[in-house]
Design a protein around this nucleic acid. Structure first.
Lengths: 339, 339
DNA sequence: CGCTGGCACTCACTGTCTCTGAGTGCCAAT
DNA sequence: ATTGGCACTCAGAGACAGTGAGTGCCAGCG
């Protein structure tokens, strides 16, 4: 078993390694941390830690480096839950407080998070599944081209262009708008979608084709969860990492573009009781991100929850990043809750 | 002066260097290209080219590499204006043909371009300055929170949320909507903005405050050129470059996030008579992108022009990239012109 | 029994040296 | 103008020794 001091040693190794980027040896530990014991003693502890596969020596006789398992233990038990500095808190309040729009809030959030952590930040769009339809607008862009705009009371606006194939008379557009409006405005998303399914059946034959096209479009918009969208910032931070991680930038950049991958990754993580979770190194191997760690937290909107987090090399400052992710998630929840 | 064959040699050097990533020497040139002369002759030509600073030897006695100036000459005079392969043309048609929406078109375009060139692709949002206002919608999200949606006949939809500070009565919203609609719908962007400037003055005192807020918002939306927006794809290609360029990825990724930089860069480039322009290496030094080249082309929409292009390491395949950029720009112009 | 100092050992890293080969510049001959 | 020949240069690859951080182990000490 690993002793109490053994864990302290692990903590010191993680800390020093993250800071210095170099394998850390027994001597430098006693130098930098007041353990009150000699280097030889530390060495004994390190031998135990190595047996438990919490640390590893990259070359036979050089310092030790935490393994994924070591980081995992560190994150689960050893990371000090230190709060953000007051300067950072002020930054959050100031920076997010100014925003007006949902889009604006999210884009500010993601930039803020990437600055606080020096990592790539990711924020998922929230859903408002209990939102209801506020307004539907049908605009003729060209004789045979319609624009459908859907507005919900959560402030979400969806647009889509429809090619009707044949010209549509203005009065038809007008009647369709009224019909669709009557069937949907004021109802929840689910109710509205159900009502629209049946709508074309009760419509005069000549305009039924158009009606099908339009209702399909609206149903599509209703079902189009924006949760499928992500906002990113800070990918330049990947390249700032001046060391060996550079080699594995490619799959990461690729994943950032193929947002599907990130969405699945986000989906799998579940944070415990509104806390923060981390996925470390090889735990992400399935996504080709085996040298990458992800720190996420839920944040909640009126009804549902969505996620935000940061992504970076396995050797990252978990303490700081987890604190930042948690703080931003909390603040964002508060901000969105107000509305 | 550089002889005719000297230019052929330069072309060969650029071609081979781009392909092999290694400095190219006189012998390998006579091997790979049927010059019909001996290596010694080529050496003489190379000495001239070096004198003109078109090529340079990275180490005293190894092959030559094109300088920025060499690439410039190559791009201006030597690049074969070879058309795209028919497979590529088909890809363009198929891939872009399916799209419906402006957003969709642009996002497909940028992905396509990045695939064709293996570089980072950038597409600027088009403006439609001669568009006119089609519809304005005012929706109450909460007692003191309004959503303004602006729709133009070019299919552009802008939204903005306004905090009114105090609750606004439904009939006030209704009257405002009518007033604003009357003043703007059917008019051009410029006319509508002018009319809105004067609108609050002619409104009853009690609702004037709200009127000012709302008209300001709409004026802001009208003036908000989407041309300020870019769509990006393919940043992972930066990391695929397996060579020395990796070192200068950081400023590039940074520029990609700070879109302002890219916008200025795009703005400075002017392509000649609907052709393609390149900005090579140190010509971009002002933006911290001195190892980066940019290839852009105008593309035009109904009224105005916008730009698209690719960005990558100085040592890129200019022939192919310029052909791809031109072809995509042309196709996009045609596609947008149809509407 | 845990801690410590001592000691031999390992091995990555660095600098130096040499060797090799691709490539050059120059020159005299064609 | 082109060519073959030749001396020269220099980056890169091995080989080699020296250095030092760090380890494992052990006997002794509190």
């Amino acid at each position: 078993m690993v002793s109490e001091r053994g864990l302290d040693v692990l903590r010191a190794i993680v800390h020093d390694y993250v800071a210095s980027r170099e394998p850390v040896g027994s001597k430098s530990i006693v130098d930098r941390h007041a353990f009150g014991v000699s280097a030889a003693t530390i060495r004994n502890d390190m031998a135990l830690l190595e047996e438990e596969e919490l640390i590893v020596a990259p070359h036979t006789s050089s310092g030790r480096v935490p393994t994924d398992k070591g980081y995992r233990l560190f994150v689960d038990q050893l990371a000090d839950r230190r709060p953000l500095s007051s300067a950072q808190r002020v930054a959050i309040e100031q920076f997010l407080g100014e925003s007006v729009d949902l889009d604006d809030v999210l884009s500010r959030t993601v930039r803020l998070l990437s600055q606080l952590t020096n990592q790539v930040a990711i924020v998922q769009y929230p859903t408002f599944s209990n939102a209801s339809v506020r307004h539907i607008e049908l605009v003729t862009l060209a004789p045979s081209r319609l624009l459908v705009v859907l507005i919900t009371d959560s402030g979400r606006v969806e647009q889509r262009v429809i090619e009707t194939g044949a010209p549509v008379a203005p009065e038809v557009v007008e009647r369709l708008r009224t019909a669709i409006g009557d069937a949907t405005v004021g109802f929840s998303i689910a109710e509205a979608a159900a009502a629209l399914e049946k709508l074309p059946a009760g419509v005069d034959a000549p305009m039924r084709d158009v009606a099908v096209l339009v209702t399909d479009a609206v149903i599509g918009q209703l079902g189009h969860h924006r949760q499928d969208r992500l906002v990113l910032a800070g990918s330049a931070n990947l390249a700032r990492t001046e060391d060996d991680f550079r080699g594995s930038i490619f799959p990461v950049l690729e994943a950032l573009e193929q947002q599907v991958v990130l969405l699945r990754l986000f989906g799998e993580l579940q944070s415990d009781a509104f806390g923060v979770t981390a996925r470390i190194g090889r735990e992400n191997a399935a996504y080709g991100l085996s040298e990458t760690s992800v720190v996420v937290s839920d944040y909640s909107t009126a009804g549902e929850t969505a996620r935000l987090g940061v992504l970076g090399p396995t050797r990252m400052d978990y303490s700081n990043n987890m604190a930042a992710v948690r703080a931003v998630a909390r603040y964002l929840t508060r901000l969105l809750g107000e509305s």
